[in-house]
Amino acid sequence: MLKYLLNRLFWMVPLLVGISLISFLIMHLAPGDITSTEASFNPKTSEESRQKLRELYNLDKPVIVQYGLWLKRMSTLDFGHSFASHQSPVFWQETDKDGNVTKGMIQEALPITLLINVLSLILIIGIALPLGVISALTQNKLPDRSITIFVFIGFAIPSFWLALMLMYWTGVSHNWLPISGLHSLGADKLSWFSQALDTLKHLTLPILISGLTGLAGISLFVRNGMLDVLHQDYITTARAKGLPENTVIYKHALRNALLPLITIFGLSIPGLIGGSVIAESIFAIPGMGKLFYDAVLMRDFPVIMGILTIGSALTLVGNLLADLAYAWADPRVRKGVAQ
């Protein structure tokens, strides 16, 4: 088990280097840097001062030198400072000589995105599991078909369109939910419970929408996994032994059909993080997606690189955890590893 773990950890290093190389190359595909943003297109600014900026940020050095500098710093988890946002650290907080703490940009954005994604994953599992099982048990009958259509609608509807309609309906037509943001004004004067409730209200729509989008994948996966398992020999045996149908389905079939789900969750992390751009822009949520989108428009290279690398590293860790959990949960693999 330990050897397997070490092996996996060892392989993460070249993967991370590969990821950083790809993201670095992409950024240098096209012209444009921090000095060509809207703010700089002002007759009161001058080209010399922009050139000065470029030198300060090493943007005048050859690409390969810039990459080297970056890789060197990354190995110490130093993702540098944002070009655009007044030198905020990209990743983690810093304390200056006067004791002022500047929070890292990713440090602040990541927990928000993770919270939304974890909550929507829980929502997805809660709904997709029963839907998938019902679908499998009623294969090709009406419930199966309706469920399939329902989850596909969730997947196929452009999420920002649905988001705006729901915002209008729940926020303008009825005063049920807040429209955008994370907190109500003055929420910090409330008790922690009311604050949590307030945040939860703000997150209801984002979670609902991201959950609806992800429903199709998981529920179909459960359905197909169940069908797969239900046709296997040991299920037939169990049935032949005269075990009650419920026991067969929930004790034997479902457990085995669920195992591969663990892997799917690991693999779905990059999609979830990536999908956060649109939801966070529309709901005005200061998470990773919003941060990334702004950085792209500002050509804020350190932030782009930092997010791509940390987002990918998260996925690698997620996959590793998923594999470990899988190994732990599946007796066959567990035994194999032990030998």
């Binding site: 993967l15 590969g18 990059p270 999609g271 990334f292 990918s312 590293a313």
Partner: peptide, 9 residues
């Protein structure tokens, strides 16, 4: 590598 980079980003 490609699978671990958030594709939409």
């Amino acid at each position: 590598v490609m699978l671990s980079i958030p594709t939409f980003f």
